[in-house]
Every structure is written in C-alpha cells, then in structure tokens.
Design a protein around this nucleic acid. Structure first.
Length: 635
DNA sequence: AGACGTTGCGCC
DNA sequence: AAAGGGCGCAACGTCT
C-alpha cells in the first residue's frame, strides 16, 4: 500500500499500519462531512470539503479507494462526492465497503441541465457511447464562481428552518413534513408554478455529463457550481435539493440491489418453464409444447400444407397476416387485442403460442443462465434512466418480470420477503399536486377508485368506470366518456391540472415534477412539418407533458421511499437487504426474526416519503407491507 | 454479416 | 370495448 500526498507540501497522510487507513489531516478528522473523490493516476485523490465545496482539509492520495473510504466512513460517515456512483461504488461493495450517502455529480448535473432546458441524457449513455460517435458538443465550461449564497446541494446550512431535507433522506430519522425552505403551498392556490415551468436559462454554458471532468480541481469546481446553482433553483423549486439527494441515494441503492440480487429459485423456475413449455430442448429451438402449438396454428391457417414443420412461422407478423388474408380475414396487425376480435379456430392457439413464446424468449432458460447466479437474479438498475425519473434496467428486464414468474422469487431458508407497494400511487399524486379537496378526501379510502365512483358517479359499483376514466385522463386519452365528464365536474382542480399540463406541452412548453425534475423541451424544429403532422406532434407532446407531471412526481416519491428504506434497513441489520424495486413497490429480504422490524421500516419510509415530497397536504399514500415466503403470495 | 428500424408484449 | 403515458427486450425484416 502506497499513499502519497496529492498536493504540494502537504503531509497529513499516514498508512504505516498497513491497513491503508488514511488520516486526512488533523483539520479534517471528525469534521469532514463532505469528501470529494477524484481518480488520479492509478489511484484516487480525496479532499475534505465544506458545504459549498471549498477545501476543508488536505488532499490525500490512495491507491486503494475501498480502504480509504472504509476508514473515513467509520470515522465520519461523510457524504462522498464523486462523478458517478455506478462507476465508483461497485468496487467498494466488492471490497465489503458500504457508504451511507453520496452526492453523484453526474446525476445532479443531469437534473440541473434538464431543469434549464437541456435534452435528456440517460445516465448510462456515457459508458455505452463515449467510445463511438461524439455528436455531443462538450459544453463543459466556466461554471459561475459567484455564489448565490446559502448552501444548496448537500448542506445542513441551507437555512435556519430547513435542516437540509436531503440530510433527512440520507440519514436522520425525523420527518418534518414541511416544504423545504418555504411555507407549504396554499391548498387553494393554483399549482401551476410548481408543475408548469418556464425556462430561466443559465447565463453560462451548462457542463456536459457526457464525459467526466478530469481531475480533482475540475470536480471541485463542478461541485461548487452545483451548490450555487441548486441554491438558485430552490428559490422557485424548494424541493430541488431533496430531488438531488434522493437521486444520489437511489444510485447507491441501485448498485447495492444489483449486487445483492433478487432471491430466485432455479428449481421452481425450471418447474414453471417445464410445466408451461415442456422439457427444455437440448439445443436451441422450440420446446415441445411451443412446437406443438406452432404446428397446430400452421395446420389451421395453412390447411393445404402437410409434412414436417410448420408451413408458416407464427413469430413472423408478416406470415400471420398473409395466412389470415388467405383465410379471408383482413388484419391491420397481429396484436393480441385485434386477434381476439376475430372468429377463427387458429386464433386461440396463436394467442396461447404468443404468450408462451414470449415467456420462453424473455424469461426462459437462456435468461436464467445469463442473469441468475447462485440463486439470485442480478439485474443492473439505472436510476433516472427514464426521462420521467423512473428507474430503467440495462439488462435482465427486472422491471418486466411476468406475473407467472413471481413464484420463482422465494425467501431463502430462515428468511422472509417483505413485499410492499403503494396502491394507486398516481391518482394519489394527482390529488396532492392539484390540491383538489374532494380528491384528497378520496385518498383516505384504501380503494380510492371506489371513493371516486361514489363521489363523482354516485355509484360505488362504478369503480371500474371511474378508474378507467381517471387513468385515461392521466394518460391523455381524448375520448370524453361519461365517467370523465363526471370526474371533471366533481374534481375540477385535479382534471384542470392535467389539462393545463397538456396545453403547456401542446404549445411547446415544459413541465416539472413536484420536486423540480423537468421534462425536455421539444426539438426546436418540432413543428417544421406539414400542418397535419404538426398537429399530431403537438397532441403527442400534450399527452407526454400531461403524464409527466404525474409519473415524474410519483418517481420523486418513490426515490424518497428507497432512500429512507435503505437507511433504515442499514441501521436494522446487515442481513436486511433491499432486493427489488419497481416503480412503486419494494421487496426486502430479511431473517424471519426481523420481519416485523422490516415491515415497520417500509411503512415508516413510505410515511416519510409522503411527508418530504408532498408535505402536509392531507394526501394519504398507503403502503401495504407484509412478510411472505414467495412473491407469488403477494396480494 | 452487421446495423438499424419495426413489431409485439411484458411490467408500472 | 380498444384509446391514451413511460420503458426493455427479442425476433423479424430490410438496408447497407
């Protein structure tokens, strides 16, 4: 182990004990609440900094980051400031080092850039594209040195009454339930200022996130710029610091979850597959039951042809369309819902074939071989991979596990799964965003749709109409069903928020989530097309912005949930693992003795997320959590 | 042969 | 009954 000072003339480094423990200098010991990490040579430079990014100690160099981080984490548990969690953290976990909190510079910059009107840059695109085309201009330039005062990004010094909510997300147990830095919004005030944005463009070029800034000084400058920038944004969007902190926490949780993996029984998986598809084929090719269905479809659709093998390929939409056409059935596509309209003996086996074929190719034996190791499914999560702030995955399709495969997710011996989801999250978010009193009252109900049906339609049994109507309104359907009309009459503020968001988008404007995540602006040339196309694009953008305010705010809430949950589980036991997250649901894997504590951790985290993100606005977001042996037992 | 776009369906 | 938001993935089909 070799440790050298990174800066001229500074000592403050000791490693003579062979543990690699780095003494960051007397000035920093116990006081370093933020530590900047920068690659340097074959190792890393560490620099204690203060809340606004100024050096608060001496630079040290370590050749083994895990050892250096481990020491300081034990000593001070600082907020680690680094370029990209996905690049740094896996090696730390590999060495057995967990950190409590961090500030992901790349993620923060992405949030700031989109806030200012930049295009969306998926977090993983750097790794994948940096070697290839370089269409992106590097905009990394001078970040304004001017400080708008106050600490923005990670400090507890942001204001006398805020106590830095990001700190609460990252660490503390309290949940204030107040909006950061301001009074809570008046329930009766229009919320447009929160969700309908106008671009207040930065004076200087925005730093690109396509390439990592090189060196400690550049990273330090970037961080200081972000602190100042966030402080400015918080004047109009007080939740923005929480957004940044929750995004960073989500990044830690994502790496931890990918590493931990979702308990996955290969035995049950084989059983399910064999049951549905027949025995695994020796080589590639269709399993027996799939092959039989293919041949049956073929016989029924191409009657003249005999002999071995199907006369048409049911995987080929072209083949299917042609075959139906010869049978006198005209289709515009081979989508399941369109096929269901058709009366023909081949339809039923074809639909069954499509269903099973999908399971085989997407979650079959080859999927198992690629993604399941030692009884755990290890996907790669990408927080913020979706423009709305939802997580994406870059492999394994963890967010699209078919329901029939949930039986494969079982607790390991002596353990249980604690599975929880926020039922009807999006309509509850709508109620909170709009401040619609009637809709807020409906969130008190465990089944919100029944409450809506009772209030708007006068018939609780019209639950499904109310549900479809509200979902359609949130997704942008143009059909004005009677249920939608009734909902608009009974919950005018809620529906009005959606319609305003849609109009803003149609006009080329931008909208934001409750915490300030901002949708990208349209391409500047988006309307330079024939009128009819321009109209279609305008409507499409209206649907997008209409949905964005809901989906992105729900993602804000979910990230706060994950942030709080990983903190609580970490305090509970190293054996309490967050093993799955999907938009509005989580699964925790714990020793059975900790089941109740884990349930409590989930419930508390949900309550905290609601308080932090949505404030004290009378919205209820129930989070049903229960210990189960198998994911199939959920609900 | 490989890149790319389309189709269709899994999840929320 | 059949229209609306966000994704990832694999196979097909076409282009290069």
């Amino acid at each position: 182990m070799r440790v050298v000072a990174g800066g001229a003339g500074n000592g403050g480094v000791t490693s003579g004990d062979g543990t690699g423990v780095v003494d960051a200098g007397a000035g920093a010991r116990g006081l370093a609440r933020w530590v900047l990490v920068a690659p340097a040579g074959a190792g890393f430079e560490l620099l204690p900094i203060d809340a606004v990014g100024q050096a608060a100690g001496e630079v040290t160099w370590v050749d083994d980051l895990a050892l250096g981080v481990s020491a300081l984490e034990r000593e001070a548990a600082p907020r680690w400031v680094w370029w990209r969690t996905a690049e740094v953290y896996p090696a730390l976990l590999e060495a057995g080092v967990r950190v409590q909190r961090c500030h992901d510079l790349a993620a923060a910059q992405n949030l700031l850039n989109t806030y200012e009107g930049a295009a969306f840059v998926p977090p993983q695109s750097v790794v994948r594209e940096s070697a290839g085309r370089s269409e992106q201009i590097s905009l990394f330039g001078d970040e304004p040195g001017s400080s708008a005062g106050g600490a923005g990004v990670v400090g507890t010094t942001g204001g006398p009454d805020t106590a830095g909510h990001e700190e609460e997300v990252g660490r503390t147990e309290s949940s204030g339930g107040r909006w950061v830095g301001t009074d809570g919004p008046d329930l009766d005030a229009p919320q447009d200022d929160l969700v309908l944005g106008s671009l207040v463009t930065e004076q200087t070029p925005l730093p690109s996130t396509r390439e990592a800034p090189q060196g400690l000084a550049e990273l330090q400058r970037l961080y200081a710029g972000q602190v100042a920038h966030v402080a400015r944004v918080r004047r109009t969007h007080p939740g923005f610091a929480l957004l940044v902190a929750a995004e960073s926490a989500a990044g830690l949780a994502a790496v931890e979850m990918g590493r931990a993996g979702l308990p996955w029984s290969v035995r049950i998986h084989d059983e399910v597959l064999t049951d549905l598809l027949g025995p695994r084929p020796q080589h590639h090719g269709r399993p027996p039951k799939l092959q039989a269905l293919a041949e049956e479809v073929s016989r029924l659709l191409v009657p003249g042809v005999t002999g071995p093998g199907p006369a048409m390929n049911p995987d080929s939409p072209g083949d299917v369309l042609k075959a139906f056409k010869r049978q006198g059935v005209l289709l515009t596509s081979t989508r399941a819902w369109e096929l269901k309209e058709v009366e023909h003996p081949a339809v039923a086996p074809l639909l069954r074939y499509k269903e099973l074929a999908r399971l085989h190719v997407a979650h079959g034996w080859s999927w198992q071989g690629q993604w399941v190791r030692n009884g755990r499914f290890h996907p790669e999560y990408v927080p913020g991979g979706v423009v709305t702030g939802r997580w994406a995955t870059s492999g394994g399709g963890a967010l699209q596990i078919p329901k029939v495969m949930r039986a494969c997710v079982v607790a390991e011996p002596g353990c249980v799964l604690v599975a929880a989801d926020a039922g009807q999250l999006e309509p509850r978010i709508l109620a909170a965003l709009s401040g619609d009193r009637g809709m807020l009252a409906a969130t008190a109900d465990a089944d919100m749709y029944t409450a809506l049906a009772r209030q708007a339609l006068g018939r609780p049994e019209a639950r499904n109409e109310a549900k479809i109507g509200l979902l359609a309104a949130m997704y942008g359907a143009r059909a004005n069903t009677p249920a939608m009309v009734a909902l608009r009459r009974r919950f005018p503020k809620a529906l009005e928020l959606l319609e305003r968001a849609a109009r803003t988008g149609e006009d080329g404007g931008i909208v934001r989530s409750v915490l300030g995540r901002t949708c990208p602006p349209p391409d500047p040339t988006w309307q330079d097309v024939p009128l009819e196309q321009a109209l279609a694009r305008s409507r499409a953008r209206g649907r997008f912005t209409r949905n964005f305010v809901i989906q992105a705010s729900a993602a804000d809430w979910a990230n706060a949930l994950v942030a709080g949950l990983r903190r609580r589980l970490s305090a509970l036991s190293p054996a309490a693992e967050l093993v799955f997250f999907q938009h509005d649901e989580v699964i925790v894997h714990v020793p059975a003795a900790l089941a109740e504590a884990a349930v409590q951790a989930v419930v508390d985290s949900g309550a905290e997320a609601t308080a932090l993100v949505l404030g004290d606005r009378g919205v209820r977001i129930p989070l049903a959590a229960a210990p189960i042996a198998s994911y199939a037992d959920k609900n």
